[in-house]
């Protein structure tokens, strides 16, 4: 059966009526440097070696870690283990329905996640094996990349994979003179510049940094500081959560 030709009756373009910032507060009543409500839970998928679920208010991300298990394609040259990341967006995650295939958005997020975690995961600890990190974004309302990276870190830690440090990530956007931490979807689209930082908070090393749009050196330094603080805050939340839940003893999933 041929695919149906359909279109959405809902307009996605928001008429830029309301200002992003009024009286020092954002549209959702937050302060510019305030994070959204964060919820982190590990052990959400029973079939996985490690799993985590992260919510940045209404951006919802779920991650499962499988392994170390037999790699599908072994690298003859290196004895290090493989870290395979895969990010998928649910079809109902964004405002417009998208097909459940590996599109550019998914590929970008996958590359981002891979780069951010490469620096932290000790691949020598699982030679000739692979650790698969599977992420599913259930709802995307801005800040998907930070949520994905934070979720993946929590899941890897839950699975007991050896890492140098947890990786947490933060994003910021600037509108005029103001810097907004953890922008929502609407804010991201209307911002003049976006800043993304993935950090290993304990060792204070950056694993990924990206800047888009217009930035002055001063605003960039401010954004760096803001995001670093954000990452440190996220890190302590993840550690609290991991301390609260016991590590996964899912030996069944590990051996597959």
């Amino acid at each position: 059966m041929a695919a149906l030709e359909t279109y959405s009756p809902f307009t996605t373009q928001e008429t830029a009526v309301a200002p992003l910032l009024s009286k020092g507060k954002r549209q959702d009543e937050r302060f510019p440097e305030e994070f959204r409500q964060i919820f982190i839970k590990t052990g959400t998928v029973s079939s996985a070696a490690g799993s985590a679920y992260v919510e940045f208010k209404d951006t919802k991300v779920m991650c499962s870690v499988f392994g170390p298990r037999k790699a599908l394609r072994t690298n003859a040259v290196s004895a290090d283990g493989q870290l395979n990341c895969d990010v998928r967006f649910a079809t109902f995650a964004a405002a417009q329905r998208q097909r459940f295939v590996q599109g550019t958005l998914e590929r970008d997020c996958t590359t981002l996640l891979q780069n951010a975690l490469e620096g932290a995961v000790i691949r020598e600890s699982f030679p000739k094996a692979s650790v698969d990190v599977q992420v599913l974004v259930l709802e995307a309302n801005g800040g998907e990349a930070p949520a994905i990276i934070t979720c993946a870190s929590a899941a890897l830690a839950h699975a007991g994979i050896q890492m140098r440090d947890l990786v947490t990530a933060c994003s910021a956007a600037h509108v005029g003179e103001e810097l907004l931490l953890d922008p929502t979807d609407g804010e991201e689209r209307r911002a003049e510049g976006a800043f993304f930082l993935a950090l290993m908070p304990q060792s204070n090393e950056v694993t990924h940094l990206s800047l888009t749009g217009e930035w002055t050196p001063q605003s960039m330094a401010e954004a760096m500081e803001l995001c670093t603080d954000g990452c440190v805050g996220l890190d302590s939340l993840v550690r609290d959560c991991l301390r609260a839940t016991p590590p996964s003893r899912n030996t069944k999933a590990k051996g597959t």
Binding site: L4, A48, C63, S64, F66, F100, Q134, V135, T256
Partner: peptide
């Protein structure tokens, strides 16, 4: 109208689902 149902088992749900 119509209802298009799709059940997906993404790789995250189980160790046995590997490919896309």
């Amino acid at each position: 109208g119509t209802v298009e149902v799709t059940v997906e088992m993404p790789p995250l749900c189980s160790a046995s689902v590997r490919s896309g």
